[in-house]
Design a protein around this nucleic acid. Sequence first.
DNA 1: TAGCTGTTTTCTGTATACGGTTTAACGGGC
DNA 2: GCCCGTTAAACCGTATACAGAAAACAGCTA
Lengths: 240, 240
Amino acid sequence: MIRHLPRRDSLSERIYLELRGKVQRSEVAADFRFVDVDIANEYGTSRMPAREALLRLANEGYLVGTTRGFMVPRLSLDDIRDVFEVRRLLEPRAAANAARHIDHATEQELTRALQEASLAARRNDAGRMILANIAFRQAWLAKVRNRRLADTIGRFVDHAQTVRLRTLQTESTRTVVLNGLAALHAAFLRRDPIAVNDRMVAFMAAAEDAFFSTRETELADKPPSVARSATRYDHNEGLS
Amino acid sequence: MIRHLPRRDSLSERIYLELRGKVQRSEVAADFRFVDVDIANEYGTSRMPAREALLRLANEGYLVGTTRGFMVPRLSLDDIRDVFEVRRLLEPRAAANAARHIDHATEQELTRALQEASLAARRNDAGRMILANIAFRQAWLAKVRNRRLADTIGRFVDHAQTVRLRTLQTESTRTVVLNGLAALHAAFLRRDPIAVNDRMVAFMAAAEDAFFSTRETELADKPPSVARSATRYDHNEGLS
DNA sequence: TAGCTGTTTTCTGTATACGGTTTAACGGGC
DNA sequence: GCCCGTTAAACCGTATACAGAAAACAGCTA
């Protein structure tokens, strides 16, 4: 038996999964500090499993180690741009591949997630929207045969997820996301890789635009902060 | 001060880098088993730093944990296909982005790596070819501003590297790689993102073809092994 | 000789302990 | 009242020890 990771049911594994879930669902305050000894006490173990879990989360980008505990990373706008760039490159193709392998069960999951998102949008419930979003993505990601590709996407999405909680507070963003999910859903049900690919491209572009425009208005409300560096121009510029 | 990983100069970090280098340069036998206590003795530390380094390597895919020590993963053809798929998606764009930021020093590194590759090809020195290959890629990868993108590529390349040692034994493959590097080199020196993008696309396709065709002949020489499953058809098929 | 079974070895996962370093709090001087 | 040096606490990295599981091995049986 070969395993890529520590024993699937070890203590550190359990703690890792638990903590990762919290971070994924944005259930930790931005300034909360994870400290191994505290976590160890909480789970009734020694420091080591907690420490290993934290180290792994930090290694995967879910947390950053400070000299005083581990915290969820505070992503800059450039960081978000970077994450979006990678997602733009990977997700359309991955979704297209998945479109060929959608079975009935996945179909149902996708539909349920879409309905849930619709409900959340109507009720202006950002938290619920995120959960529906996660469920939708996980449904089709599970059907991507290339596990390396799927896992990479999962990680990148998770990293940006933290930020999206804020942006999904905006109604216009929720509408954009909901429309994108609906279009994707239809394409998935038709098992049409090309349509899925194209709609994912459109979805990512729309999500990115929505994010940065809401951020713009957010920043506009505040007193003009220190001039943001304008040295990053790799993105959104194509190859021209 | 924020750090994404354990203290940059900790024992586990040192061991991690050392071992990763060995794996990257294919300096470990395919059946070699890394055992924490042995490594600890070798480096004059206790088990813990060695263990952490191994765990991290396993987490990043450089090693796989077995119930009896850690080993370099034995990649199946499907695994290789998966790696190539992700690389096809990421590397052209990343290289194009890097093309805009090539400075004089990088130019020299690229040139030196290309010359080294050329020399290795003439001398039929596969090991040297790999090293030149690594140097070339690291030179332009360092100029990719999106660190997430660059790191992801680095990891995926490393995973496939193990296998390439074998394929670079073939002269035709060496020629393909050398030609690809030369074309890329020229495009980089011109700072032409579009040309770099296109040549990287071509390079990846050529490398992939060369790999699988040499593997085909390899397999043809052997007695027909157990029928390989033909269920994987996501790749090399585009979206049609 | 092949297969089964009990024992030993090997390796992992976890617990606990210690030392060093950074941070934050506190108190004295300006 | 504010700044700066000192001190105490927090936290990390590492070392050592132990228990349990899996593989290897040897001996036994057929």
